[in-house]
């Protein structure tokens, strides 16, 4: 199963909200994936198929290898749906 990691600086604010929303959306889209959230430091050492977070935070994870998607509006479910569909949809 594909792994999605939602990252924010502390690992308990925005990443938690996005994780909850992502789980809801994936269910609606019928896409199976594991979603977790963590802080930026742990995010750097944990493998995932897709990393999601606010643009400011997620830019710290860009290394040319990781699949990274930054959100402009963290509460915008449309933006999140589009990212999940693009990266995980068949």
């Amino acid at each position: 199963m594909k792994k999605v990691l939602v990252v924010c600086s502390s690992g308990l604010g925005s990443s938690f909200i996005i994780e909850m929303n992502a789980k809801k959306i994936l269910k609606e889209l019928n896409i199976e994936a594991e979603v977790n959230h963590t802080d930026l430091t742990s995010g750097k050492t944990e493998y995932a198929d897709l990393y999601i977070g606010s643009q400011e935070i997620i830019s710290n994870l860009i290394d040319g290898k990781r699949n990274v998607a930054g959100l402009k509006n963290l509460l915008d479910k449309k933006e999140l749906t589009q990212i999940l569909q693009t990266h995980l949809g068949s």
Partner: peptide, 10 residues
């Protein structure tokens, strides 16, 4: 350190 990432929505 990390910029205004705490802005969760406009």
């Amino acid at each position: 350190e990390l910029g205004p990432y705490i802005i969760i929505t406009p």
